[in-house]
Design a protein around this nucleic acid. Structure first.
Lengths: 121, 121
DNA sequence: TTGACATATTCTCATATAAGCATATATAGT
DNA sequence: ACTATATATGCTTATATGAGAATATGTCAA
């Protein structure tokens, strides 16, 4: 076997630098394929292909207008990544030390069936 | 040409589900290769290989103790991902609308000696 | 329709790489 | 040294996929 799933996954979709570039550009608002092509170091077909990948994981959506297709970012789909990474934030961000202490205090006071939702990849 | 860079990049390192699993496990504290192998659906060699990838991007570090190697998470390396994704957070999180408004208010009122130590890269 | 323009798709090629398996290396105990 | 245990590395195979080039599709205007 080789690597599975891959691009059908948001984590994989953003693993590609060019696709991150596209996402960053779309953060400013919808762009046509041509707009994107001009600002990237890619030919139009390759831009379309990357957009297809992003569309498949629903990171972008398309609006048709004449001969042009305007792509826009569906940022909500980035939230799972944000949440996953944020779950480790306390491990590097000192600001969380105080919060952790506070939460631990709360926890030890109400000792109930609490669940540690470690992961869900 | 084919895909470039790839695993030498943190974004790519976390694109692999099994590696995310390893990272999640290490969040609880350092683990030996054997510990990890037992909890994953992988054979030991494959675990070692994934650990190698994670080590190359410095997401993990190793401590040798006898015949065992204890891997621990170097969460700081996740910060670039966090920052990148967070730069789009305002696009999906309504909370940021109020926060933005609030910050703008503060800014227009006066500039007091407020300290925001939520970053320290 | 013809032509120009915008975008998508197909095909090829080269590379990346995850998993399986066997084996090598390292360390500790006897 | 020998054995057992822990981990790493090498080899193979199947698959994924990014880029390039050519082509197809789609849309509008004259």
């Amino acid at each position: 076997m080789a690597r599975l799933a891959t691009t059908a996954d948001v984590f994989n979709a953003i693993a590609e630098p060019q696709r991150r570039g596209i996402i960053s550009m779309l953060a400013a608002g919808e762009q046509s394929v041509n707009d994107l092509t001009e600002q990237l170091t890619l030919k139009q077909p390759q831009v379309s292909k990357h957009l297809k990948v992003l569309k498949e994981v629903e990171l972008v959506s398309v609006r048709k207008a004449g001969k042009q297709r305007f792509y826009s970012l569906n940022a909500t789909k980035l939230k799972p990544i944000h949440d996953w990474v944020a779950s480790f934030e306390h491990l590097w961000n000192e600001r969380f030390d105080r919060l952790e202490t506070y939460l631990e205090t709360l926890q030890s006071e109400s000792t109930k069936g609490e669940k540690h939702d470690n992961d869900k990849s």
